[in-house]
Write a protein that binds this DNA or RNA. Structure first.
Lengths: 189, 189
DNA sequence: ATTGATTAGTCAGATTCTTGAGTATCATGG
DNA sequence: CCATGATACTCAAGAATCTGACTAATCAAT
């Protein structure tokens, strides 16, 4: 049941609409959790019913109206309990890794192509995370921001997201290089 | 539907029983996918019914009998198709990251404790992965093994697992250090 | 003038994953 | 002699997640 806590944690940044939340949890951004809009709207409804968040209607004239949510005191309490409980370690679950595990029987060309695509995707996320980090720390240096900044939680999770994608990129490049080298050697014979 | 392909990929290593599979997919080992025994036995049954794997009964006298499975030609074909299809990028989903996202409102001491536990867990996995890698490459150097070894798929995924856990460990240490530093500064005031 | 993108959501259904319990045998240690 | 742990699996139920479709308005571009 971490989705509810992920939503609570995201709402600490300030009031957000369901739609804004969906962008934060989008596959292209999510630096600490991922979820689809349908899940998020359902979770927002549950959280509001339980009093962990509260919403207020905002009437807009040039766009559809929206509801902005914020975490209540009870919601913060729930987060406290969550943070104090032991969580299970995260594990890897990745289609591309499955394909590479089967590298010795599948077409190397296809695999190399997938690895290239993933590396490019990782590059894009790396750039995105770097921009996010720069925006969060403003004109301060990283050490100064982490020492004295107001909200370091999102910064820290963004750092993990960045390192994760750097790991993805480096590994994809390495794996592709290994497979290319082996393909060349196989051809020579 | 990557679990089925993960099972197929795992069975490329040689004949395995359901029980042996469960150990490979265990939270403590899984370097390319994770799943519980219940899922694996169910998936094995489905795969056998569809003819992608085949099993043979092995009678043992000092232990319960078991069934060893291997991938059929159709199974390899299925893996080929899977590897050629684009997969969605993997994303992060981690309780501990959620907790750190909320770092600015939850108890820092608890969070630091969780980060320490996770770093220790990562350390254990790092050691495990390093042993696995050493065993796979035998007396050859890494470059030589990757260039000429028979089965490099599992080696490559294990490398990713290793890098992932190193990333976890480093980030946990860094985040804990930042939180400790901030706690000290807060106390001094 | 209409197509496509963005904002702001909702509904139903299927699949996947997790929780929790249970069966049965054999080996090992105290 | 009994408890624990490893081997080898199974069943049921529920929670979480994903697929796919749908409404409805505004804005920018063709």
């Amino acid at each position: 049941m971490a989705l509810r806590h992920a939503v609570l944690a995201a709402l600490l940044d300030g009031e957000l609409s369901g739609y804004e939340l969906t962008k934060a949890f989008d596959i292209g951004v999510a630096n600490f959790w991922h979820a689809l809009p349908q899940q998020l709207y359902a979770e927002l409804a549950r959280l509001e019913k339980e009093g962990l968040i509260a919403g207020r209607e905002v009437v807009q004239d040039s766009r559809p109206n929206k509801r902005l949510f914020h975490v209540t005191e009870d919601g913060v309490g729930e987060l406290e309990r969550f943070a104090a409980a032991v969580g299970k370690p995260s594990f890897i679950r990745d289609d591309l890794l499955v394909a590479v595990q089967a590298a010795d029987v599948v077409d190397a060309g296809e695999l190399i192509a997938r690895l290239g695509e993933r590396a490019a995707f990782a590059d894009a996320k790396i750039e995105l995370f770097e921009r996010l980090l720069a925006r969060m720390r403003g004109d301060r240096g990283e050490e100064e921001f982490l020492g004295r900044g107001r909200r370091v939680g999102p910064y820290l999770t963004c750092l993990r997201g960045l390192a994760f994608e750097e790991g993805n990129r480096d590994w994809c490049r390495r794996a592709a290089e290994v497979l290319r080298r082996r393909a060349r050697v196989a051809e020579e014979r």
